[in-house]
Amino acid sequence: MMRLPPFTYVAARTLAEAAAALAEHGADAMLVAGGTDLYPNMKRRQFEPKVLVGLRGIRELAGVRGSAREGLTLGAGTTLAAVAAHREIVTHYPALATAAGLVSSPQLRNMGTLGGNVCVDTRCNYYNQSFEWRRAIGFCMKKDGDVCLVAPGSPRCWAVSSSDTAPALVSLGAAVRLVGGGGERTVPLAALYHDDGIEYLAKRRDEIVTDILLPPVDGWRSAYLKLRRRGSFDFPVLGVAVAARLEGAVVRDARIVLGAVASRPRLAEKAAAALVGRRLTPELIAAVAELAAGPSKPLDNTDFTHPYRKKVTRVFVARALRALGGLGDAGRAVEAIA
């Protein structure tokens, strides 16, 4: 049986306690909420923290506050199942509800949290393997080694951002509140990520993600499409989140975000800009989809082939846009559209 390595467990009851524990144990400590990402990684010895700071007992981390009109505040400890089923989110921020509802399996969504999914470790099929497997191949730079096995000449790690909710949230213009020893700060969620498989979070070690803030809905529509082999369990090997504000058929504002094709959620800015001020016609959609596929640069370290993931980027962007514009069949992968 795969078992966890031993650790010290700190059951924090308040944010202050958690922050203090992080400060005290420094690099030896890690945070755990749902445990659905961390525990498997620990069993494979990808992480061997001496101290785990448990966030489950912190009441202020759970729950959704506010309204779509004024903006929502989602506690980082809210489970993915709760996010996916939340009526206000389903109605007004469908990209997020869809993304949360497509994470792994029903059981895992009952356990995993939104904060956990936003911070989910980057993945790579040279890295998400047992200690023995990684030792057999000679380890990689993300853990215990010094080369990148997917791009051996590369000075950086190419592990893949594998969050479903992150691209959806970035497309919705979400912000994130962080609380640490030095106080708290709120930054756009897009600023939480680096394009680096190892240092993928722009978060200090002592900081805790406490809330995700969604802006007032203000006429934005959104959609999320996920590519993966099976309808359950699988991480995204491509996620496409599109949000747009339309007046009639004319796009006033838009964001297109690609997940699982880089070490961070990748904004397709040129593609989004090409939409603004234009009518959402099939021709425009085709052109924008082509532009959006530009920044999609998957490598051969997930399920499916990387050329295939790149090809589907174009298809999914077009489908998401068609769905937002009410232009007919959006394909099977669109689960919910506002």
């Binding site: 795969m2 467990y9 445990g35 659905t36 525990y39 498997p40 448990g54 029903p106 059981q107 895992l108 009952n110 356990m111």
Partner: peptide
């Protein structure tokens, strides 16, 4: 609620 006992402490 269904949860995975292999990932619960």
């Amino acid at each position: 609620e269904p949860v995975l006992s292999c990932l619960a402490l």
